[in-house]
Design a protein around this nucleic acid. Structure first.
Lengths: 205, 205
DNA sequence: GTCTATATCCAGATAGAC
DNA sequence: GTCTATCTGGATATAGAC
C-alpha cells in the first residue's frame, strides 16, 4: 500500500542520513582506511549488515560524503557572490559566517576536515578523486574574484588576489580543524586580527 | 672484528633512516591505518621481512617519527628564543625560516602534516598519543611568549598573545600542507601580507 | 643482513533466517 | 528492514633458508 511504502521511504532516508552523519565524523578524523565498517555500525547503533543494506560499500559512503561536502561549499560560494554587499563586506561576512557555523554545527567543521583528509590521501576511490579535482579550485576562485573586486573599489589591500584567497582558506581550514578537535574545551579566537590581512586602512576601525 | 661490526652498524643506521624517511612520507599523507608495511617496503625498495628486521612493528615506526617531529620542532623553538633579536624580528624570522625550509626540504612539511594527522586520528598507539599530549602546546606557548614580549616593546600589535600565536601556527600548518601536496606545481605565495597580522604600523614598510 | 614462504587474524562484503 | 553467520581476501607479523 502507498501509505506503508511512504513510511518505509522515510525510514530508509532517516537511516541513510544517520549512516552518513556517523561516517562523516569517523572519516574526517581517521580517514577512509582508518575507519572500519564496524566502527560506522557501532557509531550509529546498527549491525554491520544493515550498513551494507543501505550502501554497497564503504567507499560509496565516502564518495557520497565528498560529493555533499563540495555541494555545500559551492552552494555557499554562489550564495556569497549573489549577495548585494560591497566586496570587502562579502569577505568579512564569509569569514564570520563560516566560523559561526563551525561553532554551532560540528558537522560543518567535519566536512572541511574530510576534504583535507581526502586531498592528502593517495588511496581514495577514483570517484572521490574526480570530484576533488573538479571542484577543489572553486572556493579559491570565488574568493579571489571577491578580493579582486574589493581591490578595484579600494577597500581591499593590494596584492595578488590568488594569494590573499589562499591565506583566507588556509585560515578557515585551520580554524575548522581546531574547532572540530578542541571545540568543546578551547574556544576559537576572535577573528578581528584577521581583518587586517585584507582590508585597507580606511576600512579598519 | 671491530671494523666489520662498525660497517654493519653503519648499514643498520642507513637502513633505519631509509625506512623512517619513506614511512614519514606515507604516514603524513595516508595516516597510520592507510599505510601498509608493504607500502613502506616498496617505497624503500626492501622486502617486507627486512622492515620487520629493523622495527618490531608498524606502530613503532610511527611513534619514532612522532618523537622526532616534536624533537625538531621544540629544538627550533628553543633556538628561536635564544636568538639575540627583538621579538618582532624573531616572529618574522620564524615565519620566513619555516617556509623557506618547507620549500627546500619536503621532509619538513611532512613532519608538520604527520603531527596534524596524528592529532586528528583516534586510533594511534598510546605511546604516540602521550608524546602528542605532552608536547602539543610547546610551539604555541613559545610563540605566545615572543608575541607578548613584542607587545611590551610596542612592535607587535595588541591582542591576546595566545590568539595571535594560534593564527601563526594555523598559517604555518596550512602552508606546510599546501607545499607538501602541490609544492612542485604551485608555488606558495609571498608571506609579506601576513606581516600585517602581527606588526604595528611603525614596523611595517 | 636479506629474502621467501607461511601462519594468523581481522576487515569487507554476502547469504539467508526472521 | 534488520540481524547473525559466514566466506574471502589481504595485511601484520614470524620462521627459516641463504
Amino acid at each position: 500500500m502507498a501509505r506503508n511504502s511512504d513510511q518505509n521511504q522515510r525510514v530508509r532516508e532517516e537511516r541513510r542520513e544517520r549512516i552518513l552523519t556517523g561516517a562523516l565524523e569517523l572519516f574526517a578524523r581517521n580517514g577512509l582506511a582508518g575507519t572500519k565498517i564496524s566502527d560506522i555500525a557501532k557509531h550509529t547503533a546498527m549491525s554491520n549488515g544493515l550498513v551494507y543494506h543501505y550502501f554497497p560499500s564503504k567507499e560509496d559512503i565516502f564518495i557520497e560524503l565528498i560529493r555533499t561536502a563540495f555541494e555545500r561549499l559551492i552552494l555557499a560560494c554562489g550564495y556569497l557572490e549573489s549577495l548585494t554587499l560591497p566586496p570587502h563586506r562579502k569577505l568579512l561576512h564569509a569569514m564570520d559566517e563560516l566560523v559561526h557555523t563551525f561553532r554551532t554545527s560540528p558537522t560543518a567543521c567535519l566536512y572541511h576536515m574530510l576534504i583535507a583528509q581526502a586531498t592528502a590521501a593517495e588511496n581514495i576511490p577514483a570517484g572521490a578523486r574526480d570530484i576533488l579535482e573538479q571542484n577543489r579550485n572553486i572556493p579559491y576562485a570565488t574568493m579571489a574574484r571577491v578580493i579582486a573586486q574589493g581591490q578595484e573599489q579600494g577597500t581591499i589591500r593590494p596584492g595578488k588576489p590568488d594569494d590573499l584567497a589562499f591565506f583566507f582558506w588556509v585560515n578557515i581550514n585551520g580554524i575548522a580543524q581546531h574547532q572540530a578537535m578542541y571545540g568543546e574545551t578551547a574556544q576559537c579566537p576572535d577573528l578581528a586580527p584577521l581583518h587586517r590581512l585584507y582590508l585597507t586602512s580606511k576600512e579598519l576601525p
